[in-house]
């Protein structure tokens, strides 16, 4: 890939390893994932790693936000709250950053880029939770007033 920062290429090269490690430790990432089959877990992890890679390459926040909204919405149907979904995404990024540090001990930019992506992810989810909190709070007076 021409002109792409080295950490982007490094992340892409690490992706298969990160995916394998995630599947291996999935029970410790989130107890709910332990119940998924390896294939189901792989599908979810792959989607998250793809979203991280897209963010690193394109820097496109709108796309990333769209992915996160879908991720959180789908997790909510599994009974997983947005904060749990957030911690899961951060745990995935942590695993990726740990592997990056181990594979590139002399180049801190890879792990740093992943940490920044994790912080942006956590921030976007907080924005989403705050937005929903504002909406639901606005619905309270009408809901309470609907009672006799």
């Amino acid at each position: 890939m021409s002109g792409v920062p080295s950490y982007v290429a490094a992340f892409e090269q690490l992706r298969p390893q990160i995916l394998a490690r995630l599947i291996e430790v999935r029970g410790s990432l989130d107890h709910a994932i332990a119940r998924l089959s390896a294939d189901e877990a792989r599908g979810m992890f792959d989607a998250v790693l793809h979203a991280l890679a897209t963010l690193l390459v394109t820097g496109d926040h709108t796309l990333h936000r769209g992915f996160l909204h879908s991720f959180v919405a789908v997790r909510s149907t599994e009974g997983v709250g947005p904060d749990h979904a957030q911690r899961l995404l951060v745990a995935i990024a942590d695993t990726a950053a740990t592997l990056a540090r181990a594979q590139h001990p002399n180049d801190p930019t890879v792990a740093l880029a992943i940490n920044h992506a994790a912080r942006l992810t956590a921030r976007m989810i907080n924005d989403g939770i705050a937005e929903e909190l504002e909406r639901r709070t606005a619905q309270l007076p009408a809901a309470a007033g609907g009672r006799r």
């Binding site: 709108t62 796309l63 769209g66 909204h69 879908s70 959180v72 919405a73 929903e132």
Partner: peptide, 21 residues
């Protein structure tokens, strides 16, 4: 129903991003 609302919003956002992409 709350989850359905989130999913509908996610669908709207996906439609927007798909169109863009």
């Amino acid at each position: 129903e709350l989850a359905q609302r989130r999913l509908r919003e996610a669908l709207d956002e996906q439609a927007h991003n798909l169109q863009r992409l």
